[in-house]
Amino acid sequence: MYKLATEKLPELLQCWSQGATVYVPQKVGEVTLFRPFKGQGDLALGEGNTLEPPKDLFFPRTEKLYDYWASGKEARLEPVELHPDRAVLVGVRSCDARSFLLLDQVFLTRGYVDEFYKKRRENTAVVALACTQAAPTCFCTSFGIDPGRAEGVDVQMWPVPGGYLLEALTPRGEEMLKQASGLLAPAEGEKIPAPAQPSLQVELEGLVEKLQKMFDHPYWGELSRKCLGCAICTYLCPTCHCFDIDCETIETSGYRFRCWDTCLFAHYTLMAGGRNPRPTRKERLRNRLLHKLQYFVERYGQFACVGCGRCLELCPVNVDITKVIRDVKEVSL
């Protein structure tokens, strides 16, 4: 375990910037976002969750798959070769760190590996920052997430008076601390701070079993009446990963790309010929919530919610997933 003095943080980030791009929470206007560290900027490591999750580092909003040329009967394509730069993601909270492990399940297992995701993921070191204070919308502990210690990260940081404690958790993390050894001091007698204790909690016991019996329940119709279908929840959700594939053609050339999509949009399941198996917001909102709380558990053994609270905070009509969980426990079948 090592200690870094607060004033040396920019030097540490500078040090890790050698041969890599460092992404760190920074103030951008009124909000906090992961942005590349350029030697200055308004670092915001003490500010709780970033507005947007850092999933776009591995799964960009839009990503080109290949270029093509087509004219008459002839056509050819040229795949995009992806050689992502090395990256270091600093200041990831335990909830977002769990989301990476959930996205790994989607993109790296079940028969097919998403090469673009894999390359970006492998090229990125993750440095977690422990939470010592919970926001009113935080409920990560309900999903077995420890806000004081993240899963699957290379380095764990803890905020302490006058600086940060750092512990390497992987060989890559050890290498990073070695690289920065001139800035770090042995952390003798330092105590790891107590983790945050979110007051918001949900009870998950029996939830999946109850949902399995609720597909046709009128609850979904009632709930969806206030949903605007704006999909801000999807946009801000660290585990939402659905994508569309489309193309852009200008005269005889173009490219095919994938981009983020959401099951809350009507065209998502609209088939050629006009049939749509999820024709209204009721079916679409139900699908999103069941995917988080039932389908993902059935498929991968874990909930696809990490309790980061972003959707609670920013849904314009207050569709609150913690209230949904409480409601589901209470409705009669």
Partner: peptide, 24 residues
């Protein structure tokens, strides 16, 4: 069965029937 599909490999999400993907 059929459903709208994009990736074909159980990742893009849209052809799910509960926890199953029709494409995969």
């Amino acid at each position: 069965l059929e459903m709208r599909m994009k990736c074909g490999i159980g990742k893009c999400g849209r052809c799910n029937l509960g926890s199953k993907y029709i494409c995969l």
